[in-house]
Write a protein that binds this DNA or RNA. Structure first.
Lengths: 341, 341
DNA sequence: GCCCTGCTAGAAAGCGCTTTCTCAGTCTAG
DNA sequence: CTAGACTGAGAAAGCGCTTTCTAGCAGGGC
């Protein structure tokens, strides 16, 4: 048995102490504290007063054990520094908070290999899970899914039983490409996302479909990643590709790209157009304001909670939804120069 | 007693089941799972195999109750949408994660009145707390502190016993003001933070000290807030003040301000200089790149964890630190026009 | 050859709740 | 006036672990 066995000198007061103080049984205290007490008002009052006097508040651990649930849900994402995930988290946390649930975070810090372990761990600490695991192998994900339920998946297909919230990257990327094409661009670079990213694959599928429709337009893929740093480092490859426009995996990459391009004396959009994806909160404020495909991340977090809540209650969750990104044309894209230098 | 009483059909396997499966006692299972087992290797092996076969993993609730701790810490902040808090959280989460601790978030969504309750709640769910409560009344904070320990406070003084990580807003604001003054500005607006914000008070003290040194320079305070929206809405007051430069409570406010100013046809920094505070990750990328005072938020999160860890272990935490913001001069500030229009 | 020591593994208590079960007391009806 | 139906509150079991305590069994010293 744990530490001290007798003296209850320090530490939080227990239900037993309150019971003693009020001269009732622990059962009664429990009932009063949970509003399940039927009986003499005078007793309830005594319990309340005793509780107040001792500054009692029930142990969450004990409660969780007895009840079999924790009133908390987990959120795992590959990179908490990315505003897109932060915004999902913020929406999730606020909405879950309204229902008295808190969120426990699992930041896999880009380590794909640790992700399954991390997901299992945080899931077992909570009642449910919201999983953003863009790079996890599909087989692994499918294998993991049963052990993780109840959960909702963001931007992955869970193979059937698990509610999923998706962003239509396929259409989003196509809109962006069409926009660039309408502007007159015929050679466009795509700075791709991390290897094995599911959403990167969707974007590539969108690119293929665009190519089929516009065979005259070249879309050159160059290696990228998910961070501004990756965008910055992709600048040379982009320049080498001699394109008039570049589409980045996401806004972060686009921002790094713009910074690097400017460092090299190129101006955006005069010399080269740049578009991102996500519409993170600052995309509109950067120089130049970023053309991007807007994704309602906060709403993703909110809807994720609604589904989780249904699942937790044993109800049928609302149907899956595929969010359509909204093309957000700003000033980082423009018609190509007639005479490229 | 909870739900089912006999059948252990569904639900996670318990230590008792593993014990039965392996033909040993629960005590032995517990010991081998925790590496405290000394004895026949063959037995350990049998337990491990049984555990693997049942896909057993110990219940966190039960473990927490027995052990008296949760291996989790809480983080409460007034607005999770603010990149400054997100960055602190990210640093905290990553560092705590390395030590096997997870973080539970409490987003008070700007509701100052709910904050004490929220802080108590999330604190009681965890082993410790990192509290960012810039607006909480000092009395209330001091009263609350004992109940919240172990905790570390960000940007507040905890009245003695509680480790605190502070940013020197006083000096930061002075540097910014000196920078503006050096540029030649003699009428400067300060778009203040939320009412009752402790860090706003520090900034104001910095302003007073600057005024004493440069009595010829007017610093006009106009009401603001903490969000971009607040900055946007402060534009009219700023314009009415007829200043050549404006210092914002933070970067978010500065960004809103710049947006609003541009909407009204003013250009930054030609017509009016704007400076922020915090150096959020995107400050350097906005148009124009924002002059600001850089605060190492991630480091705040990291150091917060180190102190929490010491506290949890019953050790003496490292001493408090006051981070000095670094003046980051970028293009949103410039010398005033000789002939203001 | 016997007693004591040392070691391994199990029995059981306890962590702080919730809830079922139980029982004494009260009410109402016949 | 008593039997049956409630009612109100306590006893106790159980949630799934950890850890102390205990007992059984070898091994070694005299």
């Amino acid at each position: 048995m744990p530490r001290k066995r007798n003296g209850k000198s320090h530490g939080a007061p227990t239900i037993a102490q309150v019971a003693t103080e009020a001269g009732v049984s622990p059962a009664t205290v429990s009932r009063v504290m949970n509003g399940r007490f039927v009986g003499a008002d005078e007793i309830a009052e005594r319990v309340l007063q005793a509780a107040a006097r001792l500054d009692y508040s029930p142990s969450y651990s004990a409660r969780s054990l007895a009840l079999g649930h924790t009133q908390a849900v987990a959120f795992v994402a590959p990179d908490l520094r990315n505003p897109a995930f932060q915004t999902i988290l913020s929406g999730l946390s606020a909405t879950a908070g309204d229902d008295g649930y808190r969120v426990l975070i699992g930041d896999s810090a880009e380590s794909v290999s640790e992700e399954p372990l991390l997901a299992r761990e945080v899931r077992r600490r909570c009642d449910a899970l919201v999983l953003c695991a863009p790079r996890m192998d599909q087989e692994e994900l499918s294998g993991l899914a049963p052990a993780l339920q109840p959960m909702v998946l963001i931007n992955r297909s869970g193979g059937g039983a698990v509610p999923t919230l998706n962003v239509d990257y396929y259409s989003g990327i196509r809109s962006l490409l069409e926009h660039l094409h309408d502007l007159g661009h015929r050679r466009i670079a795509y700075v791709s996302g991390p290897a094995h990213s599911a959403s990167n694959e969707h974007r590539r599928a969108g690119i293929r479909s665009f190519r089929d429709r516009h065979p005259e337009t070249g879309v050159i893929e160059v290696a990228g990643g998910a961070s501004s740093q990756d965008g910055f480092e992709a600048v040379d490859s982009v320049l080498r590709a001699e394109v008039s426009a570049v589409l980045a995996f996401n806004d972060l990459v686009a921002i790094g790209l713009i910074g690097g391009l400017q460092d090299q004396g190129r101006s955006v959009p005069e010399d080269i157009s740049v578009a991102g994806f996500d519409d993170i909160p600052f995309a509109r404020y950067i120089a130049p304001p970023l053309t991007t495909a807007s994704v309602p991340h906060e709403e993703l977090g909110i809807q994720a909670w609604y589904r989780l809540r249904a699942l937790i209650k044993g109800q049928e969750p609302a149907h899956d939804v595929v969010f359509q990104p909204r093309l957000e044309v700003r000033s980082s894209t423009a018609a190509p120069q007639s005479s490229p230098r």
